[in-house]
Simulated assay, not measured.
Amino acid sequence: MKKIERVKNYELRRGRPAVMSYRFRIWSLFLILNSSLLPLSCGKYSFTGTTLDPTIKTITVNTFTTSAAGGPANLPIQFTEKLKEYYQRYTDLKVVPSNGDIILEGSISGYDVLPVAATASDQAAQNRLQVTAQVRFSNTKDESKNFDQPFSFYQDFPANQTLSQNESRLLPKIQDQLVLDIFNKTAADW
């Protein structure tokens, strides 16, 4: 009992609590270093949340087309480039022009302005810009992951303003969310 009190008194005189003994600090450092190496052993997961098979090395993003009656003429090209950039930034995949291990393609199938939030006089208080992308995903390593489905997102704007007044502000937000949704479905398997 006296030995424990002497150790505590020694530690307190040196300005350290008894809990932070030399052995405790070394053991803590050892645990921290070992736990930081743990994610490196997990081949299928990463800090970005992707669950791509480690054998997948390349992606092809074919230029999207448009089948919607509306929207900027360069919308499909902008959307395709955003997809490529997102995969390059958040995965180790190499973007190739053709024959990738995974392939994304599709079209902008909807570009709609819809009235929402009606007022007492049956007029819209807000309008909604909604963009829909029909996406075909092919995984050459695991065909059970293939799909063909629509992704849709919207942003609202005041009814007393025109679409052209708001389009340049709303469209990037919509595209970013669509890209994130597609990425989560294809690379994060959500």
Rank of each mutant, 00 (worst) to 15 (best):
V135H: 15
A69K: 07
P97R: 09
R14G: 00
L178R: 10
G70N: 03
S98T: 15
F147M: 08
K84N: 05
I32D: 05
I174N: 03
Q78R: 10
R14K: 13
G100H: 03
K145A: 12
D189A: 03
N166M: 10
K94H: 04
G106I: 10
I77Y: 15
L38Y: 15
A133E: 07
I59R: 05
R169G: 05
K141H: 05
D101T: 01
D142M: 02
A18M: 10
R13T: 04
D53L: 02
D53V: 01
G100E: 03
K44H: 00
Y111Q: 09
S67R: 10
A120F: 05
Y22T: 15
Y86E: 11
I103T: 13
K44R: 00
L93H: 01
P115W: 00
S46H: 10
T186L: 12
P39S: 06
W27Y: 12
S21Y: 12
S46R: 09
T119K: 11
E81Q: 14
G71H: 06
I56M: 05
I174F: 08
I59T: 04
G15Y: 14
S46M: 04
K2Y: 12
M1Q: 07
Y45E: 01
V113E: 02
Q177S: 14
Q78C: 03
S28C: 06
A120P: 01
M1D: 12
D92H: 01
K94F: 00
F47H: 09
K82Q: 14
Y22W: 11
V96C: 06
D122M: 04
K8R: 13
D148F: 15
Q130A: 05
S21F: 12
P17C: 14
T58S: 05
I26G: 03
D176V: 11
G49D: 03
K145L: 15
K3R: 13
A125D: 07
Q165G: 01
V179E: 09
L180I: 10
E167I: 08
E105T: 15
T140L: 13
Q134L: 14
L171Y: 13
C42W: 03
T186K: 12
D176S: 11
Q78L: 12
I103C: 09
Y45R: 00
L31D: 02
L114Q: 02
S144A: 05
D122P: 02
Q165L: 06
P17N: 15
Q88E: 06
T66A: 15
V95F: 12
N184D: 10
K173Y: 06
D189H: 10
L52I: 03
D101Y: 06
Y111W: 07
Q126C: 00
K145P: 00
T55S: 11
K141W: 12
F79G: 12
E5T: 14
T50H: 08
E5N: 15
D189Q: 08
A68G: 07
A124Y: 02
F137V: 11
L180N: 09
A117F: 04
T48R: 07
A117C: 02
S152E: 10
F30C: 07
L31N: 01
Q126D: 01
R25T: 14
F24S: 09
Q149V: 02
S138Y: 13
K82M: 12
F79Q: 08
T140A: 01
L31W: 11
K84A: 09
R25C: 15
K141I: 09
T91F: 05
M1S: 13
T63A: 14
I59Y: 05
F137T: 08
D112M: 03
F147R: 07
W27P: 00
D92L: 02
T186W: 06
T186S: 15
R128G: 00
